[in-house]
Amino acid sequence: MYKAKKIIRKPGCTNPKSTLEIAKIYLTGVKNDGFYTKEAVHDFVRKGNIVRIDIGPSYPKLIDAISSRGEKYVRSEPNDTPNDNLFRLPRV
């Protein structure tokens, strides 16, 4: 199973509640565990790979998205939390 474990925000992050502000995501279960750009994770998920956020008990899935400016990113599937579950992961 592929899991998202940590995030790195963009330098000078101005809107900590926008997943567009995430620069990299740490993935495990892939060939080389480590940090991957949000664009690379977007492409990985878009190809049909299921990545779950390492937040139990629900382990929400990542969903690929594209901003109005054409920027690739990922977000978590909607649930009852007010903020995206990616922000519940440790930050580096």
Results as ranks from 00 to 15, higher is better:
Tyr2Leu: 14
Lys3Asp: 00
Ala4Asp: 00
Ile7Val: 12
Ile8Phe: 08
Ile8Gly: 05
Arg9Ser: 10
Gly12Met: 03
Pro16Ile: 12
Pro16Cys: 11
Ser18Ala: 12
Thr19Phe: 07
Thr19Gly: 07
Leu20Ile: 10
Glu21His: 09
Ile22Met: 02
Ala23Cys: 05
Lys24Ser: 11
Tyr26Asn: 09
Leu27Gly: 08
Leu27Asp: 02
Thr28Arg: 07
Thr28Asn: 05
Gly29Met: 04
Val30Asp: 01
Gly34Arg: 04
Thr37Gln: 07
Lys38Tyr: 10
Lys38Pro: 07
Glu39Gln: 15
Ala40Ser: 13
Val41Trp: 00
Val41Asn: 02
His42Arg: 12
His42Cys: 11
His42Ile: 05
Asp43Phe: 06
Asp43Gly: 04
Phe44Ala: 04
Arg46Pro: 02
Arg46Val: 06
Gly48Met: 05
Ile50Leu: 12
Ile50Lys: 15
Ile50Pro: 03
Val51Met: 03
Val51Phe: 03
Val51Thr: 08
Arg52Thr: 08
Ile55Arg: 14
Ile55Leu: 14
Gly56Asn: 06
Gly56Asp: 03
Pro57Arg: 06
Ser58Gly: 05
Pro60Phe: 00
Lys61Thr: 04
Leu62Arg: 05
Ile63Asn: 02
Ile63Glu: 07
Ile63Trp: 01
Asp64Ile: 02
Ala65Cys: 11
Ser67Ile: 07
Ser68Thr: 14
Tyr73Phe: 15
Tyr73Glu: 00
Val74Arg: 03
Val74Pro: 01
Arg75Trp: 02
Ser76Gln: 04
Asn79Arg: 01
Asp80His: 09
Asp80Gly: 06
Asp80Glu: 13
Asn83Ala: 13
Asp84Asn: 12
Asp84Glu: 02
Asn85Ser: 14
Phe87Gly: 00
Phe87Thr: 01
Arg88Glu: 05
Arg91Lys: 15
Arg91Ala: 12
Val92Gln: 14
Val92Glu: 15
